[in-house]
Write a protein that binds this DNA or RNA. Structure first.
Length: 873
RNA sequence: GCGGGCAUGACGGAACAGGUAGACGUACCGGACUUAAAAUCCGGAGCCAGAAAUGGCGUGCCGGUUCAAUUCCGGCUGCCCGCACCA
């Protein structure tokens, strides 16, 4: 026996290997490397304070891929950074007087140390933090480039304004019409804000989704719905005079239903509605009421269709004598289409509801196939299906599709006030991206406002425009706005005193290009180095939570296109492969008084069924709540530090990848982590026994039957793991490692060790090494320690991935299941290359088959060679 | 309301392309070792009947296609997710 300890001590072993990897720069990646590249990236963390189990799962997955691809000969880029701007730092500053920068950098230091204790194969020399001027300087450069190309612009827009905190709130920050922090009633305000012109790329962002073959279908669909393309037409309706304007343009996707029109409805924010409201207090009241309802999500669900009859009329485009009333309606949105619609109650549910409320009636113009138009009526729902046009003059008999084309074709060549009465129009739900935030802890928008010259871009040589450190959070609002001197600056154009823009950028901007910055994070003068960024991108495998399915991923796709337009890189799609991992969930515990208890505050009594749980503090009964995502509020979190401290990082990583498929939620259980810990020890013992038995094995190519049996087990597992790694099915990889471990353990036990030949020793050593290489990407520290025990040179992290010998796995004699009437009743052992005649003869000899046939002739025998036999009686 | 997904033992899950349902793990049961427990090792286990051999049933429910269906098709039920007055 060697001096190997009987128990594997992760606490001692793990830091040792982490140091060795660091010293050897094992995971540092150079940009000058001829091997094929592979870029693995996990969504970078927000430095909230400490890592959580979700991080452990996310980064364990990425690390497995990075380590395997490295072993397979790729030049792997696997970097880490910090999404470091954002509200929590400001909130902390308000709460305990800390300074956002100090708070953030302290958190980064803590979390870096925690991530390093996980043993991740990360190139830490490329670490970036988005709050660092060396990062956001380039973001300011790109903003100016985008400004120059018209991709960034200013416009007045309605925003959720919190009158207590003096800031704009995102929609998600408005809860039941109130600010999430201040609880103040949120107002709709018109504010001039900065926007990115994401709508310029709407068509391309939509179409290119089809090319993202290695993205989950679900994410592509969500983005598709978000972009929301629809084909329709703009139709102009002439207003009867007197009226403040001459016409109303509506957007419709159903021009075919034009003869079913009963009214026109416009949004309260439509220019016509505003003009009318200015002179009509009642209409103004109605518009105000619409605005109030607009802020409350709950109210929206139950909101009735309401309207205000303006008294104005328009003429039908195909019949000037046919007049339609014009309403201001609460269900018409100003920021979609033209803010005006024509209402066809028979074939649109909303229009139906509205018409019912105001007694406007309906006219059926589409009749379902096979239904008599004279008897077809509507009870309380509009008919939105297909059919044939009726009651529609020249359209009668056409399909709605044909009618749509016909209506637009005719109106295109009909003039109204000297212009075509209609035109085809594609519309998108996607809006331009508002990036202005009235916040301190974000990237300053590099422009200067001059009374004489207007908006002036900050001179490039003045970048980065850094945040002033001396700000106060005593008062609500934006500290940059209140700072005594920061915003005072001379106009770069005329030299007169001017003001800096005090808005900072949405933090989603920061995370929209960090993946590009990682490729050359030390370029001081440019955001990217073209030669380098174009070689590394796209990211081959991106991994993160499904919660970013729309915003972050869509913004990144847009920003990459913007960077291409401004010559900072040369491609459109940043992420070739995307994987969305599930959450880490845990039971919740609730005391009798309803308070949430943490797993550390309870005692579980397993002796009874169902389990009973008691409070450690006072022994009172505790109720088991639902299994939910780990969260501070439910107190069902497990601290990765505690787990790594008591079980080691490898055990935590192993458990996080076991059992549940990676895209589903994984339930954290004490039994699960214990099981993983037991398996670590089992592997350690097995590898130790193999080392003792095989350390003096002479190399040989002459393997006997038993030796080949061992080799077959190892190579078989290797083939399976390879297949499942390619599809990121880590839970199956884990199962294959368990299987091989059990097999090798059994085989080793059956060997008469003193009598064993060199071939058996060599085969077992080979199998042991394969086993280590299969689990090392998941448990890298244990992998190194075992690799060293087996007398291997260098590190397992530096070893080449083993090549499977497929000839070992193919059997000459195989067992084929035999079914009788589709149910398995026997196994047939035959030669692999047996003919169907031979198989049929052998099958008829089987006891089970004879019994079932009872002397009769089989009705049919289905033989699928090497797969199955089915005897039909 | 619209769009999408999922449903398999006590539990997490496996079953590549229609071909042995339940791999692997957890929990459980039995045995060995131990003064004992833990750990470890060996064995058992879908459900029902039977001493066993064996038979019947079985992948949410109903129906269909097929020699053969967890897998394909039609219809339902339940749960989860996304969007939500988008004309």
């Amino acid at each position: 026996m060697t001096g190997r300890p009987e128990r594997y001590n992760a606490r001692e072993v793990e830091p040792k290997w982490q140091e060795i990897w660091r010293d050897r720069k094992t995971f540092e990646t150079t940009n000058e490397d001829g091997r094929p590249k592979y870029y693995v990236l996990e969504m970078f963390p927000y430095p909230s304070g400490r890592i959580h189990m979700g991080h452990v799962r996310n980064y364990a997955m990425g690390d497995v891929i990075a380590r395997v691809m490295r072993a397979k000969g790729y030049n792997v880029l696997h970097p880490m950074g910090w999404d470091a701007f954002g509200m929590p730092a400001e909130n902390a500053a308000r709460l305990n007087g800390s300074d956002p920068a100090t708070w953030t950098y302290e958190n980064i230091a803590t979390m870096r140390k925690q991530l390093q204790s996980m043993g991740l194969s990360i190139d830490w020399s490329r670490e970036i933090a988005t709050c660092d001027p060396s990062y956001y300087k380039h973001q300011q450069t790109m903003f100016l480039d985008m400004l120059g190309k018209g991709l960034a612009y200013r416009k007045s827009a309605k925003v959720n304004w919190d009158p207590v905190d003096h800031t704009v709130l995102a929609n998600e920050q408005v809860i039941d019409g109130r600010g999430w922090r201040s609880n103040a009633l949120v107002e709709q305000r018109e504010l001039t804000q900065w926007f990115f012109k994401i709508t310029d790329f709407a068509e391309d962002l939509l179409e290119s989704l089809d090319s993202l073959e290695r993205w989950p279908e679900k994410v592509r669909l969500m983005q598709k719905n978000w972009i929301g393309r629809s084909e329709g037409a703009l139709i102009r309706f002439a207003l009867e005079q007197p009226a403040p304007i001459g016409e109303i343009t509506v957007y419709t996707t159903r021009p075919d239903t034009i003869f079913g029109a009963k009214f026109i409805a416009i949004s309260g924010d439509h220019p016509l509605a505003r003009q009318l409201a200015a002179e009509n207090p009642q209409l103004q009241d109605f518009v105000d009421e619409c605005h109030r309802i607009g802020t409350s999500v709950a109210a929206l669900e139950t909101a009735e269709k309401k309207g205000f009859d303006t008294g104005l009329k328009v003429a039908h485009p195909f019949d000037r004598e046919w007049k339609l009333p014009v309403f201001v309606a609460n269900f018409v949105l100003m920021d979609y289409g033209t803010g005006a619609i024509f209402g066809c109650p028979a074939h649109d549910q909303r229009d139906f509801d509205f018409a019912k409320a105001y007694g406007l009636g309906y006219e059926i113009v589409v009749c379902p196939e096979g239904v008599d138009k004279s008897t077809f009526t509507l009870a309380d729902a509009a008919y939105e299906g297909d059919g044939r046009m009726v009651n529609s003059r020249f359209l009668d008999g056409m399909t709605p599709n044909e009618a749509q084309n016909e209506v637009v074709r005719r109106l295109e060549s009909t003039a109204l006030f000297g212009k075509p009465c209609a035109e085809r129009k594609v519309n998108f739900k996607l809006r331009d991206w508002g990036i202005s935030r009235q916040r301190y802890w974000g990237c300053p928008i590099p422009v200067i406002h001059c009374e004489a010259c207007g908006v002036v871009p900050a001179p490039r040589e003045s970048l980065p425009i850094t945040l002033p450190p001396d700000v106060s959070f005593d008062a609500p609002g934006n500290p940059l706005e209140r700072h005594p001197s920061w915003k005072r600056v001379a106009c770069p154009k005329c030299g007169r005193s001017a003001q800096r823009e005090t808005d900072t950028m949405d933090t989603f901007v920061d995370s929209s290009w960090y993946f590009a910055r990682f490729t050359d994070p030390n370029n001081q003068s440019e955001p990217t180095t073209r030669k380098i960024v174009d070689r590394w991108l796209p990211v081959d495998q991106y991994i993160g939570g499904i919660e970013h399915a729309i915003l972050h991923l869509l913004y990144s796709r847009f920003f990459t296109r913007a960077m291409k337009e401004t010559n900072h890189l040369g491609l459109k799609e940043p992420f070739a492969g995307l994987f969305t991992q599930g959450m880490v969930v845990h039971e919740t515990y609730r005391s009798e008084n309803g308070a949430w208890l943490s797993p550390a505050e309870i005692r579980i009594d397993d002796a009874t069924t169902p389990r009973q749980i008691f409070s450690l503090k006072d022994g009172s009964r505790v109720e088991i709540g639902p299994i939910e995502k780990m969260s501070k509020s439910k107190r069902n979190t497990i601290d990765p530090d505690d787990i790594i401290g008591s079980f080691g990082a490898d055990t935590a990583r192993w458990f996080m990848l076991s059992d549940s498929p990676p895209d589903r939620d994984v339930i954290w259980t004490e039994e699960g982590i214990q099981g993983a810990a037991r398996f670590v020890q089992k592997l350690w013992r097995l590898i130790g026994e193999i080392a003792d038995f095989s350390s003096d094995a002479k190399t040989t190519n002459d393997f006997g039957e038993f030796a080949n049996h061992i080799r077959k087990a190892a190579h078989g597992a290797l083939v399976k793991v390879d297949g499942d790694l390619a599809r990121l099915r880590f839970n199956r990889c884990v199962a294959h490692v368990y299987e091989l471990t059990n097999e090798l353990s059994g085989l080793l036990g059956s060997i008469d060790q003193p009598a064993a030949g060199d071939d058996v020793r060599a085969a077992l050593l080979e199998a042991g090494k394969i086993l280590v290489q299969l689990f090392a990407p998941i448990m890298p520290h244990l992998g190194e320690e075992c690799w060293a025990s087996l007398g291997a040179s260098r590190l397992v992290a530096e070893a080449t991935w083993p090549e499977a010998d497929h000839s070992l796995i193919v059997d000459n004699v195989i067992s084929v299941p035999v079914q009788i009437n589709g149910k398995k009743r026997a196994d047939l052992v035959v030669a692999r290359d047996a003919t169907t005649e031979e198989i049929e003869r052998a099958v008829l000899e089987l006891d089970a088959v004879r019994r079932a046939l009872a002397g009769q002739r089989p009705g049919k025998i289905v033989i699928v060679p090497q797969r199955i036999v089915n005897v039909v009686v």
